[in-house]
Design a binder for these strands. Structure first.
Length: 273
DNA sequence: CACGACTCCTGCTGGC
DNA sequence: TGCCAGCAGGAGTCGT
């Protein structure tokens, strides 16, 4: 269910239940997801106090004095806060028990991850998975100028450069199509052939679309489940994503669907040049 | 360095 | 109605 907005909404949802609380149990019900679980995690965490949470791209961070838990939700993961006695279901793989609540991770496709980063190895931002990540799209330093500078040697289509995450993080397959539509840029355009003015529009579009999705509580994803278990009302608010063959909401031309790097891209031939 | 193909896994949908 | 190929919101890794 990820995309940056859903991860951020999840982070905000679980934070009040975690912050300042003492971990009383850690339970794994599977040997691992994308990578093996840190099976000795209980030794690191039981009796320790959660200092706060954070996020880097689509990685959710739970900070302790001596290190950080790194959680990725993959394609199908979610975190929920549940009463202690809640019986786990088939794809519930990881529990972090804090006080009278359990933070439970569910992930049917198991593309997610749970990792431990020890503070002795330096700040968590230096973790191998986080080190190479691009800039945060909602921070002030993100701009069209950055996109322009960083793409001068990138001949790949702009859609794939956005998804790669090494220039800007958190723009997933849905919001990549949506932002390119809003900026009027054809997703097939080679990144180094796009000028500063168009990158200014793209940066603004990315920022606006992600911020709006967060404000709506991540409800723009069909099966997004928030930390409180609310499924959110799915609203058909996309301009192009998943609308192949339907009329463009701006010009009426039919929305095209193509494949780029094994992923579907949706765009309007007429509005995006 | 940059790019593109491949891969992990389960569940659901659409076409026959 | 039933079956099954194909596809799904991610992203690390490897070969070129």
């Amino acid at each position: 269910m990820p995309e940056l907005p859903e991860v951020e909404v999840t982070r905000r949802g679980v934070t009040p239940y975690l912050e300042g609380q003492i971990v009383t149990a850690v339970i794994f019900r599977h040997s691992g997801l994308r990578w093996p679980f840190p099976l000795d995690l209980a030794n690191h965490l039981i009796g320790c106090r959660v200092r706060g949470t954070g996020r880097r791209g689509k990685y959710l961070l739970i900070h302790f004095d001596h290190g950080s838990l790194i959680i990725h939700l993959g394609m199908s993961g979610n975190l929920r806060i549940l009463p202690l006695e809640t019986i786990p279901k088939k794809h519930d793989h990881f529990d972090l028990v804090v006080g009278q609540q359990v933070m439970r991770m569910t992930d049917p496709r198991r593309f997610g991850a749970v990792l431990w980063h020890d503070a002795e190895k330096g700040p968590v931002e230096q973790h191998p998975l986080l080190r190479g990540l691009g800039i945060e799209p909602l921070e002030d330093v993100f701009s069209g100028q950055i996109l322009y500078q960083q793409t001068r040697h990138r001949s790949a289509p702009i859609k794939q450069v956005l998804l790669a995450g090494d220039i800007v993080v958190g723009v997933g397959n849905i919001y990549a199509s949506e932002s390119l539509f809003q900026a009027g840029i054809n997703p097939k355009t080679a990144a180094h052939r796009i000028g500063l003015a168009r990158y200014d529009k793209l940066a603004a579009a990315i920022r606006e679309i992600l911020a709006r999705a967060i404000a709506k509580g991540g409800s723009t994803l069909r099966d997004f489940i928030g930390a409180d278990g609310q499924t959110g009302y799915f609203q058909q608010s996309y301009f192009v994503y998943d609308r192949a063959g339907q009329p463009c909401k701006i010009c009426g031309a039919l929305i095209e669907q193509i494949k780029q790097g094994q992923r579907s891209t949706f765009y309007c031939k007429n509005c995006q040049k």
